[in-house]
Design a protein around this nucleic acid. Structure first.
Length: 277
DNA sequence: GTCTATGTTTGCGG
DNA sequence: TCCGCAAACATAGA
């Protein structure tokens, strides 16, 4: 579900809620597979007593630093949410992991589809090392993107969704970026002219920054829809140009937006602005 | 009942 | 090795 802007919104909200500094007092796991690599007891034992020293994002992972040498990584996948609530409240059906804190609050992992995962690692690089560059980092230049694209022979869309190529993009922001750069999702990565790479680089950063400004994209009111902590929705849906706008007018040329399937994923394009290779 | 879904991983065949 | 494709995970909503 959540991509870079949604995950960053959650991280920002956790920071604003004053979570760093709190210590874990108790852990309950109601769906063991939400915890990867460890059994429930090991997970609870290793987490209990640890203090949260920092919270950050890497790709689509939320990283809780538990000083000095432990990290809780949370990947929300399709339907995961984090909730920060007053302790002792009743447990609703999809809340699979409850982390009680010494300030009286509870961090709860809510995940109807159960695809999300929590990882507890000593070395953050164990999980994060395979991720590609952060698209909003200073070091992510058009030149670096050009080198990456040129070294591969894949279709643009599946390549941009590949987290080892670039970290944090998902179906929404890839469709939006390709539309903005006027590139068809099936274009081969090594076929782009220099100007097209610059346009793509600019488009990726533009759509992500806009998503961030709008606190992420919330698509509906359902249980698996994105909401930040405290059920707070984002407003970026209004800013989407093509994603889930099949049949509506392209904001640039007024042609109807089309929905096609690329790399097994639903894909939205303007057939006139984004011509097939 | 049918179709779709903001994600990732694995296994297969070219 | 690289690439594309299908399936698996599990559930809700239209």
């Amino acid at each position: 579900m959540p991509e870079l802007p949604e995950v960053q919104t959650i991280v920002d909200d956790l920071l604003a809620a004053g979570l760093p500094g709190a210590a874990v007092t108790a852990v309950a796991v109601h769906w063991p597979r939400s915890v990867a690599g460890l059994n429930v007891c090991e997970f609870a034992e290793r987490l209990s007593g640890r203090r949260i020293s920092g919270i950050r994002r890497r790709g689509k992972f939320i990283v809780f630093d538990l000083a000095p040498d432990l990290h809780l990584l949370v990947h929300l996948r399709m339907s995961g949410r984090l909730l920060l609530v007053a302790g002792g409240g009743e447990l609703s059906p999809h809340q699979h992991v409850i982390i009680a804190l010494d300030d009286g609050r509870e961090l709860r992992f809510h995940d109807p589809r159960k695809f999300g995962r929590m990882y507890l690692v000593a070395e953050a690089g164990e999980r994060l090392g395979r991720l590609g560059p952060e698209p909003l980092a200073r070091g992510f230049t058009a030149r670096r993107l050009a080198e990456g694209l040129g070294g591969r022979k894949r279709s643009l869309k599946p390549l941009l969704l590949d987290q080892s190529f670039i970290a944090g993009l998902g179906n929404i922001y890839v469709d939006e970026a390709l539309w903005d750069a006027r590139l068809h999702p099936c274009r081969r990565s090594d076929s782009l002219a220099a100007g097209e790479v610059v346009a793509l680089h600019r488009a990726i950063r533009k759509v992500l920054r806009r998503g961030l400004r709008n606190n992420g994209t919330s698509l509906g009111a359902g249980q698996s829809n994105f909401n930040s902590i405290g059920e707070k929705p984002g407003s970026n849906r209004e800013a989407l140009r093509v994603f889930r706008r099949t049949g509506l007018a392209c904001p640039r040329c007024r042609s109807p937006i089309a929905r096609i399937i690329v790399g097994q994923r639903s894909t939205h394009i303007c057939p006139r602005c984004q011509t097939a290779p």
